[in-house]
Simulated scan of single mutants.
Amino acid sequence: MTDATARLVASFAGMLTLLEGERLTDWITEAMTSSPTGISTFALGLNSDYSAVHSGLTTHWKSSPVEGAVNRIKVFNWQVSGRAGLPFPRKRFPLA
């Protein structure tokens, strides 16, 4: 990994962690002009849905509680329907 790629990845990780969506336009521009194909393709994908990505990087709203509830319901339905099988409890509740 080149220094430019490492710097861009670290910068994007900082934007995700600190919710700094105002830096997104500059990051996409830099990534599309000065990085290897993988990062520039990723930046192109971000640019194609810019409004959603920008909202995700600036909004403090989280859907974690809802996703946790949905996951619990799905696991319960999976167990009740019998599709979980025998290996499921071993993976779900490992022995100490």
Rank of each mutant, 00 (worst) to 15 (best):
P36W: 02
T58P: 08
S35E: 01
S63R: 07
V53A: 14
N71L: 14
G38D: 07
V70G: 04
N71V: 06
L24A: 05
H54T: 02
L44Y: 04
G82V: 06
T29I: 04
D49I: 00
T37I: 06
A43T: 06
K62W: 07
S63A: 12
N77G: 11
T41Y: 07
A69G: 06
E67L: 15
R72I: 10
G68E: 08
Y50S: 03
D26Y: 00
P65N: 06
I39D: 01
T59W: 00
K62V: 13
I73M: 12
A69F: 09
Y50T: 02
T41H: 06
A69S: 12
W78R: 12
H60F: 09
G56W: 05
G82E: 06
E22P: 02
E30S: 11
N77C: 13
T41R: 13
R72T: 11
R23N: 13
D26E: 04
N47G: 08
M32C: 08
V80W: 08
S35I: 01
S34W: 01
A52R: 15
E67K: 13
N47I: 00
R72V: 08
Y50C: 04
V66Q: 13
K62A: 10
G38M: 02
N77F: 13
K62Y: 11
H60E: 10
T59D: 15
I73K: 12
P36T: 07
